[in-house]
Design a protein around this nucleic acid. Structure first.
Lengths: 209, 209, 209, 209
DNA sequence: TATGAATGAGCGTTCATTCAT
DNA sequence: TATGAATGAACGCTCATTCAT
């Protein structure tokens, strides 16, 4: 799996030429079109290059890997979704918290392939922090922390560090996504899978045990 | 991908003959031996039948699929591990709770292949509840509930339904397993990934906010 | 392909028991039903025995071979068709001759499998004259000879032995059937493939060259 | 059975590169060598690629199918045989006509596999006229017509269109080939199977009935 | 840079036939 | 007799990736 001729990170590369960028975009466009038609699982390098009117080798001169392209595409989409969520109002309750996250979860759980890529690239492979998916995860925790701080003391408990709570939320999001693929817990709405856990996780303890 | 001559669920199938069961066991034994030697990723149908001294056609008359066999093997192993855990003493604290689950998590996270199969067969594909992995997940929740009930009122909060707590624990287990493949959260011990979340999740609320 | 324990032809076999005959008939019925549904190419031993509610081995205790069963089925059908043709009036012209043979040709050319079996069992394998298809071929030549004799001197030439002519006709029938599978000569009606050859073959020579 | 990524007929395919042609030839050569050693029935894809020192995938990127390769090989051989026949002198009699065709018939009837492939690819499957076997059949009729024209008026009748006669001859050739597999008519020499039919078919009518 | 031919290991499948019970 | 589990050799196919031009 290790690329033999990995480009050195420090290598001074002159600005990519216009033609190269165009080719890259053609490939991305082709891939997105195919995904729109056939889903992520239906994405095949062969089809991408055919659609982009480009040779197979060209693909691999632009993307190390098919998975790398997917990670890029998925990362972009995650950012778009998170942006849209961030632009909305801060949730006023825990329930709303869950609801606001629905689009993110829906997207991640839509497809086994997305799920796989998200997991793979959110972590291990992502030491180079250029990986969009990893960045997005950080953005998610940041957003959650903001929200938690806003509700802290009212709807949200104060006995746990907001950051840890945020990470926990993120964990629940991932888990709820994973459970999408698990019939045992499969209710229809993703936020309905999330909320039951969010409540005891975030709510302030009832006064008396 | 639909099996052409799938056996009808309602079909009168008389009990398999002794020889059939023996052959099945030979296949399973062969597969386990190969996995022990070369790991799950090194399992090849061709080797299994060679080792079991059985024809390839026989393999496919017993298991739909290589993945199906793996799901069976992994399911068995999960049961074995869970049994061992269940036989041990009830954990006395939340930390111990996490520690006791380590073997389960270690096994599930040992290998991407196991991880994949567990996820795939725990859920979607497992509408047929014959799937061992699904069953094992239920067993896990049962065990957790027992433990939670045992600690309820002392180490564990009483303001949340034990069953829901148990499901939450299971969710954290899965998530921690997933995070094994995620460098950002990758600490060495699996229970160390689990514990930070288990504490606020299970512990009784501190007396005053 | 040679059966190891072929039954000796001279073996005194007691009359088959009723149950055996019933099983045999169940198999034949099942096979015919499947052929009606899926064509000869779709006939699989597995399905036959399933439909007949009989074990696989039973099939082979009744028919040496799948092909043997097919030869039986096809032979029966050929006899039925030839009988129907023979019951009709003697053709009054060469064209009619061709037309009268259409049902036979249509049946034989309907399907590559039928074609194959007919060829195989009309000849080589058919040294045991019990083979229905071989017998049917003889019946065909007999019928043709009758017809040729009826028209001899009027519509049909007298300079060639009627028997040879009959064999030639049979040859043309087979050939026209074969040509069904050959696009170059593929006109719609089988008798239209036959007639052009029958005319110069059977017609009396025009008085003067 | 429909190829998933069948190349569109209209697709702009630039001329294949030299290397591709060489590989193709390697495959063909390997196949021919194997056939020479083990006969058509002994041709196995695995052996072909092994001998050609080429990957299995490569085979299928060159030929849809094992049968397709065979059709090519057989078509080539038929052309070679027909060329040799065409280079010889025009037959001087009907008997010679039959004799001259012997090599063609011998080749086609040598082997059930060849016979099958010839029939399958001469016809139905051969709508794409690229199929060599179909082309060869046309070439045969052309050659026969030339011969018939040469003998017309002396050894061959004038009351039937030469082209129709030629097609009839071709039909007889095919039929004689088919009858090779039919014991009832199985004389040793193929032209001896052909001649009896050729005589009344081609000869001028005797002066008086 | 771009090209596109080649790679290659293994999977899933087929199904008539055999044979021990 | 009937049973049905097992056989087994090959085929077709996949498709991301490599690499020489």
């Amino acid at each position: 799996m290790v690329k033999k001729t990995a480009k050195l990170a420090c290598m001074e590369t002159r600005a990519p030429q216009k033609r190269r960028l165009e080719t890259r975009q053609k490939l991305i466009d082709a891939a997105e079109a195919i995904i729109a038609e056939r889903g992520y699982a239906g994405l095949r390098v062969e089809d991408v290059v055919a659609r982009a009117q480009v040779a197979k080798g060209t693909f691999f001169s632009h993307f190390d890997d098919k998975d790398r392209l997917m990670a890029l595409l998925i990362g972009q989409e995650l950012e778009r979704i998170l942006d849209r969520i961030a632009k909305g109002p801060t949730p006023a309750s825990i329930d709303e918290f869950a609801i606001r996250l629905a689009p993110l979860m829906e997207y991640m759980a839509q497809d086994r392939v997305v799920f796989d890529v998200v997991l793979r690239f959110s972590g291990a492979a992502a030491i180079e922090t250029t990986e969009l998916i990893s960045l997005n995860f950080m953005h998610q925790v940041e957003l959650f922390t903001t929200w938690i701080n806003a509700l802290r003391g009212t709807a949200i408990r104060t006995d746990v560090d907001p950051m840890l709570l945020a990470e926990g939320v993120h964990a629940f999001v991932i888990q709820a996504m994973a459970l999408k693929f698990c019939a045992l817990h499969n209710t229809n709405k993703s936020h309905e899978r999330l909320a039951p856990y969010l409540e005891p996780w975030l709510a302030p303890p009832k006064s008396a045990q």
